[in-house]
Simulated scan of single mutants.
Amino acid sequence: MSAAGWFIVLLALIGANVPFFNQRLFAVVPIGAVKKSAWLRIAEMIALYFAIGMIGFALEARAGNRFEQGWQFYAITFSMFVVFAFPGFTFQYLVKRR
């Protein structure tokens, strides 16, 4: 696997956890004193999935020929993205804080 491939995997691992480790929208925009809802976190995670996917397509096109992908590719990569989000989900919702 090339360095660009590992870069995308690392970026996906970080991007999948961003919605859970902070109370800002996309880790930049403050949303006020209220806590982010789970639906907002899911929407943010989906948006980050597509953003990182576009970066991956750009790197693939820059490296050579870009391959066409079917629905199976998107189903598998989104499932991997959800699995990558497990540490952040665990930290946000399953760890008890005192």
Rank of each mutant, 00 (worst) to 15 (best):
G53N: 12
G32I: 12
F26E: 03
T90M: 04
V29P: 00
S37P: 12
Y74F: 15
G70N: 11
R24L: 04
R97H: 10
L94Y: 03
I8A: 08
F57H: 09
V83Y: 03
V82Y: 01
V9C: 04
A4T: 06
A85M: 04
G70M: 04
E44L: 12
I46D: 02
F89Y: 14
G53A: 10
F91Y: 12
N65L: 03
T90V: 11
A12N: 07
A43S: 13
S79M: 13
G32P: 08
A12Y: 05
L10G: 06
F89N: 00
G32C: 12
A27F: 13
F67T: 04
A12H: 00
G32S: 10
F50L: 10
V82M: 08
L13M: 13
G70F: 02
F21G: 02
A63V: 03
F26D: 05
S79E: 00
V83S: 09
F50Y: 07
M1G: 15
A4H: 13
Q92E: 11
S37C: 08
F26A: 10
A47R: 02
F7S: 14
A51I: 14
R98W: 07
L10D: 02
I42T: 14
Y49R: 03
K96N: 10
W71L: 14
I52V: 14
V82G: 02
V83G: 05
E44G: 11
F67K: 10
W39F: 08
Q69Y: 07
F91C: 09
W71T: 05
R62Q: 10
L40W: 10
S2V: 01
R62L: 08
R98P: 12
S79C: 07
K36E: 12
F7Y: 13
E68F: 07
G64Y: 07
A3S: 12
S79L: 15
G88V: 02
W71R: 05
R62W: 06
R66Y: 05
K35H: 07
F57E: 08
R97C: 01
L59Y: 06
G56S: 13
F57S: 09
I14V: 15
F84P: 00
F67H: 10
S79G: 15
F21H: 06
P30K: 05
A47P: 00
L13R: 02
R98T: 12
I52P: 00
G64D: 08
A43G: 15
F89D: 00
G88Q: 03
I31Q: 15
P30Y: 09
F20Y: 13
A58K: 07
F78I: 08
I8D: 00
W39H: 11
V34R: 12
L25Y: 13
V28N: 06
Y74I: 04
S79P: 03
R24N: 15
M54E: 13
F81I: 08
F81G: 09
N65W: 05
Y93L: 02
A43H: 03
S37I: 04
F73E: 02
V28T: 12
P30C: 04
S79H: 04
V95A: 07
V18R: 02
Q69N: 06
Y93C: 02
F50W: 14
R97E: 08
R62Y: 14
N22Q: 11
F78C: 10
N65I: 06
Q23Y: 06
L11I: 04
I52R: 00
F57L: 14
S2H: 11
F73Q: 01
